[in-house]
């Protein structure tokens, strides 16, 4: 958590840069990142707050030209550590390590939001909101990821959250992880769970094809009809609960759309890497 040498007084003279993936196809992909940036701007904690994206503008290579501050905190709005946070972002931002000194600037590269333990808080809140009045003991909570080598560490981030929620005392009947493209497959959600109520939360940064269409089809909420569901987009989240396979299923929007993600970004800023002991000249 917060460290004395990277304090809130430092933030007020610093820039926060939130990095997202973005999309050239899905207009909702960058929306949560912008919303979290707007919220953090409103709080006035930083001198300036900017966003940059891999697939949208501004791009990673131009965002540093958009800020005035000499101190910069960079937070990847990504769900896990992996190819993007370890290879692409450092390369495109020309980072030298956790702390970079370049052009008179100090850039602190924080961990991605999805691996912060405070994501647990969001998942618990989301589960309570989506199935109001249902006792946790009668809920199986399913946290869904993509799986496969596309993002080798997303499964690790989800498994970690499953353990944290089990240990949290929240009292869920059970908490399990499931994936679109690897075992345990989310398509077998009824075999993976036993409680009469099943809450399914996609562990993604934004809503898009996966949460609007792919996962609902795998769950059996909708038929596979490309285009038809995209046209309605968020509609699939508004039809809860679904009576399916003898259970009551509640389906959530992507966890990254939660407004509390702004707090997780701040948690990662508070945990920012320290000044190296021998900064470059």
């Amino acid at each position: 958590m917060a460290d004395s040498s990277v304090s809130s007084s430092t933030w007020r003279d610093a820039a926060l840069v939130i990095l997202g993936h973005g999309s050239t196809q899905n207009p909702d992909s960058s929306t949560p990142t912008w919303q979290h940036a707007d919220e953090l701007r409103r709080r006035g904690l930083f001198r300036e707050v900017q966003c940059a994206f891999w697939k949208e503008e501004p791009g990673f290579r131009e965002v540093m030209h958009m800020i005035d501050s000499d101190h910069v905190f960079v937070v990847p709005n990504f769900i896990s550590e992996g190819y993007f946070t370890r290879d692409v972002l450092p390369r495109e931002l020309e980072l030298q390590g956790p702390v970079t000194h370049a052009g008179g600037r100090t850039i602190r590269y924080c961990d991605p939001v999805g691996i912060h333990p405070s994501m647990t808080r969001l998942l618990l809140k989301r589960a309570a909101e989506i199935a109001p009045g249902v006792p946790p003991s009668e809920i199986s909570l399913v946290i869904v990821g993509h799986g496969t080598s596309l993002n080798e560490n997303s499964t690790a981030a989800i498994k970690s959250q499953v353990e944290l929620i089990r240990a949290s005392g929240a009292g869920f009947g059970e908490v399990v992880d499931a994936y679109m493209e690897e075992e345990p497959l989310v398509a077998r959600w009824d075999e993976l769970t036993t409680a009469p109520n099943v809450v399914v939360v996609p562990f993604f940064i934004a809503d898009g094809l996966h949460s609007y269409e792919d996962i609902p089809v795998l769950l059996g909420l909708t038929e596979n009809s490309p285009g038809a569901i995209s046209a309605n987009q968020g509609e699939v989240f508004r039809r809860n609960p679904y009576a399916l396979r003898g259970r009551q299923l509640f389906y959530s929007a992507a966890i990254g759309t939660d407004e509390l993600m702004a707090d997780v970004i701040m948690d990662q800023v508070a945990a920012a890497p320290q000044e190296s002991t021998s900064p470059a000249a």
Partner: peptide, 14 residues
């Protein structure tokens, strides 16, 4: 301006 033409001002100044 940074919403209409992201980074245009900063790029031009830099």
């Amino acid at each position: 301006l940074d919403f209409f033409y992201p980074a245009a001002l900063g790029n031009w100044v830099a």
